[in-house]
Simulated assay, not measured.
Amino acid sequence: MKDIETRTDLEQLLWAFYTRLLNDPGISYIFTDIAKINLEEHMPSLTDFWELSLFHTGSYKKNPMQIHLDLNAQERLTGEHFSIWLGHFNTTVDSLFTGLNAEKIKTRAESIATVMKIKLYNAQN
């Protein structure tokens, strides 16, 4: 297996990852029923986010925390949701890639999930 090296690699990872998420009833409803995500339309933005996060390139300009705060206002995002999300993310990375960037993206995902959980918890209290 190779490492994550390009935007195309990120697209491959993200399509596989979201396929897993959308097939998991413990979390899929958040994307389909609450956020009503159109993955075809949303994928470029997701790829932009991870391209910026991993490679420090790309054009991502949105505020992911605000997006999740707004989503949390509609459906409380729990620690279990974040655990499912992170589990699928790590499993997907490990099934497709190996190397420094593969490990880096998993670490970034865990950091992002941790910060979001803390901020969402603080917003609720």
Rank of each mutant, 00 (worst) to 15 (best):
T19R: 14
H56K: 11
N38E: 14
L71G: 00
K61C: 10
I30H: 10
D24I: 04
Q124T: 05
S28T: 10
S53P: 10
I84N: 04
A73T: 08
T6W: 06
K117M: 15
F97D: 02
T32N: 12
E40W: 09
V93M: 11
A73P: 04
N72V: 06
F55C: 02
K62P: 07
K61E: 13
H56V: 04
E51P: 10
L39Q: 09
W50H: 13
N23T: 11
L13A: 00
L77D: 01
E40Y: 11
E103C: 03
G58A: 05
W50S: 08
Y60I: 05
T19K: 15
L71E: 01
I118N: 12
W50R: 02
N122H: 10
L46G: 00
A109T: 04
T114Y: 03
M65F: 15
T78G: 03
A109H: 07
S83F: 07
F97V: 12
Y60V: 03
P25I: 07
I37C: 08
N38F: 03
R108A: 07
E103Q: 15
N63D: 15
M43D: 06
E110C: 01
V115S: 15
N38I: 01
F17W: 02
K119R: 08
T91K: 13
D94E: 12
T114N: 09
Y29W: 11
A16N: 00
Y29L: 07
Q12K: 15
L54C: 08
F89N: 01
Q12F: 02
G99K: 13
T114Q: 08
S59N: 14
I34W: 08
K2Q: 14
I30R: 09
M116F: 15
I67E: 10
T57Y: 03
T91L: 12
D94K: 15
L120R: 04
G26F: 11
A102K: 08
L10W: 04
Y121R: 11
R20E: 10
H68P: 07
L13T: 01
H42Q: 13
R7L: 01
E80A: 05
L22A: 08
T47S: 10
F55R: 01
N101T: 06
W85R: 04
K61N: 11
E11W: 03
L10Y: 05
D94T: 13
K106Q: 14
L71W: 05
W15M: 06
F82V: 02
K61I: 12
N23C: 14
M1I: 14
G58N: 04
D33T: 14
D48N: 15
I30P: 10
P44N: 08
S111L: 08
S59P: 00
P25Y: 14
E110A: 04
S83D: 14
L10M: 06
I34P: 02
Q124M: 07
R108T: 08
F82P: 02
D70R: 15
V115L: 12
R7M: 02
G58S: 06
Q12T: 12
L120H: 04
T8W: 02
K117A: 08
E110M: 02
H42Y: 13
T78M: 01
E80R: 09
I30Y: 11
I84C: 03
S53K: 13
